[in-house]
Computed example of a mutant assay.
Amino acid sequence: MNSVPQSTSRDTGPDEHTPVVYVVDDDESIRFTLQSLVRSVRLRVQTFDSPAEFLAFPKYDVPSCLILDVRLRGASGLAFQADVARYGVRMPILFMTAYGDIEMTVKAMKAGALDFFEKPFRDQDMLDAIADALKRDAARRASEAALALVLSSYESLNVREKDVMQRVVAGMLNKQIAYDMNLSEVTVKIYRGQVMRKMASRNLPDLVRKAEVLGIGIACVASTILPSLAPDSIGRVATALTAHQGTA
């Protein structure tokens, strides 16, 4: 009968913000070895003897990585890697196996594995790979959080404010926007100020960067706006676009 390691139900580490290393291996001795190794550098660790146990365990909201054995009872680590995205697991994966070969390594790396270790592995090599994986996951999480914030800010804009923002990032002046939208210049300035405040943008370049993150590209916006502009405005907007692209 297989025993479940103690760390499967108990976490360890300095505090709740400490990154977590998850280990899936049906060899209890390997789980224990990795558990001790990860704890030695003051990281939290959770070990499991099957992918099912790992998937059922609530994940911590901190940078994480998964150390996954290639050969598991009743399942393949490589097959689990192929399915892992469907389960919402996006952390970096480090593979290990006692039966590694070039074909297996290539397959794992092509599927997105960060590293591949043959057992027995050097402790320092594994620790270095874990540190790199956690750093990458932290960067991913920060990028996603920043994008979520920008999306939330954009959704807080009303329709008119979004229209003004599109024209602002396309390089149009307030008077050009006022003419195009049939508004007074004062009203455009008010909308523009609201856009800058709601988007938490310090200046125009910052707003343009956020627009690009949202997929509101300069060229794309211009293609929808230019046809509606007065003839004397098109040249000025085109010049602004060229200047922006030249500094990008």
Rank of each mutant, 00 (worst) to 15 (best):
F54H: 09
Q6S: 14
P19R: 04
T12G: 08
V20K: 03
R39T: 05
P92M: 01
A52C: 02
L72K: 09
S76T: 10
P58E: 08
F57S: 15
L66K: 09
P5A: 11
D11Y: 09
A56D: 13
V45H: 08
Y87N: 11
G100I: 04
A98L: 02
Q6A: 14
Q35P: 00
K59H: 11
V106I: 15
Y60P: 01
F57K: 09
S76I: 04
T105F: 02
V4G: 00
R44V: 00
A75C: 07
D27C: 08
R86Q: 12
K107G: 08
L114S: 09
E16P: 00
S64R: 15
S7K: 06
V20A: 01
V106M: 10
R90C: 06
H17K: 14
S7T: 15
P63D: 05
R44W: 03
Y99C: 08
D11F: 07
A56R: 13
D11T: 14
T12C: 09
S29C: 01
D101L: 03
D61A: 14
V70E: 14
R73M: 07
F48E: 04
T33F: 10
S36Y: 06
S50V: 06
V38I: 15
V89Y: 03
F54S: 09
L114I: 05
T33A: 15
K110R: 15
D115S: 12
P92W: 00
V70W: 12
F32V: 14
D83P: 00
M109V: 11
P14E: 11
Y22N: 10
I67L: 15
V70F: 09
E103L: 05
C65K: 05
S9E: 10
V89A: 04
A75L: 07
A56M: 09
P5T: 06
F117V: 03
I30N: 10
R71N: 11
P5E: 12
V20P: 01
Q81P: 03
V23W: 00
D15H: 07
G112W: 02
D101Y: 03
V62I: 09
T18F: 01
M91V: 05
